[in-house]
Amino acid sequence: MSVSIVILLICSGIFVGVVNTFAGAAAAVSISVYTALGLPIEIANGTNRLPVLFQASAAAVNFRKQHLLDYSVGLKLGIPTALGALAGAEFAASVDPSIFVILLATILILLLTLLIFSPNRIFKGNGKPAREVRKLDCLWFFLVGLYGGAFQIGMGYVILGLTIMGMGYDVITANALKSFIVMLYIPFSLAVFMYHGQIAYGYGLVHSIGNVIGAYVASRYATRINTQFLRWMLIVFIVLTVLDLFKIISIKNALDNIL
């Protein structure tokens, strides 16, 4: 692995760690970087679980130090999410790559629409007091786990949507819960992709370094993050990823010329 690739993985990882800790969908950046470096889409998808695990763990620990994390609620929501992630990951690891590309591109386009036309639905809370976890919440998070185990991209938005708009948490507390829930379920989906041999450990571990740095910065200075900047950076990366998936452009060729 060349020095330029290491720098690319770490720098992109820092951005991914910041965005995923504060909101979500930055897994699209990781996927585009991995595929640009030559990984098949299914291996890029599996490898993405490694940095997410380290990133979420770093953020959850830091949120806990600031007394913003409720372990009890996190466990009640994280366990059904982990069970769903097992089934979702098995689907993603087994489905035909061409079908997976279509599904992934569809999800990215939906996320792009949300980012452009309704960003405040996620970035701002509703100010309602938090309530107890209900059985219906556990069912929703099991379904969320199915999605996260298969795709991961946009999980931050889904979890924040349920905890902020559905359960009434403020955005900072919801982010703490999100990090803890992701930390709980990611090992289950990671194990499935490891079993299927769909992890590029070198790329994933180096990318994780940047993810941990970004997660620490975001969880430490969450109230100072410029969400509009993150929003537009994500929009750019998602557009490029969709164009690359449909082979309209080639991020790999562009990177080859640079590196």
Results as ranks from 00 to 15, higher is better:
F15C: 15
V158T: 14
L77D: 13
P51I: 12
S219T: 06
H196F: 14
K128T: 02
R64V: 10
V33D: 00
F237R: 04
N226G: 09
G46C: 05
R224L: 08
A26R: 00
S4Y: 14
A93H: 07
M183C: 14
G204S: 10
D256T: 15
V212E: 08
K247D: 12
H196R: 13
H196T: 04
L230W: 04
I251K: 00
K178S: 03
D137G: 06
L114C: 00
D170Q: 05
T173L: 07
A222F: 12
G156P: 00
A89M: 11
S4H: 11
L184V: 14
L86C: 13
L245T: 01
Y203N: 08
V19W: 06
V19T: 14
A89E: 01
I248Y: 14
N226V: 05
S57W: 11
H67W: 09
I159Q: 11
A218F: 11
G145T: 10
V73S: 14
I31S: 01
D170S: 09
S98Y: 08
L139E: 02
V61Q: 07
P40R: 04
Y201K: 05
G13S: 10
L190P: 03
F91T: 01
L108S: 00
V206M: 12
S179G: 09
V18F: 08
L136D: 05
I213T: 00
L8D: 08
N48H: 10
R220L: 13
A254V: 15
G148F: 06
R131G: 09
D244W: 12
L112I: 12
Y147L: 14
W140C: 07
M155K: 01
F100I: 11
I14M: 13
L177Y: 10
Y185D: 03
L103Y: 13
G78L: 02
A26L: 04
S12P: 00
N175Q: 07
L243N: 03
S32A: 15
I102H: 14
L205G: 01
G166E: 09
A44C: 04
N257D: 13
L53F: 14
V242G: 04
A58W: 07
L83W: 01
P187N: 02
I5D: 10
A92G: 06
L77Y: 05
I251W: 02
V133A: 03
V171N: 01
D70Y: 03
N20P: 03
F123G: 08
V101Y: 01
A191W: 00
A130I: 06
S208M: 13
L259W: 01
N126M: 11
R121M: 13
M183H: 02
R220A: 15
F91W: 06
R224Q: 13
V133H: 10
K124R: 14
G24R: 03
G149A: 11
K135A: 15
L160Q: 07
Y201H: 11
L184G: 03
A92V: 07
G149V: 06
V19S: 12
N253P: 02
I238N: 02
F246C: 06
A25R: 02
L77E: 12
W140N: 05
L139C: 06
T163K: 12
M233Y: 07
I107S: 04
N257C: 09
G24E: 10
I99V: 15
L75G: 01
F63V: 06
S208Q: 02
I107C: 06
T227Y: 09
R64M: 13
G125W: 07
L39G: 09
I41T: 05
L136Q: 12
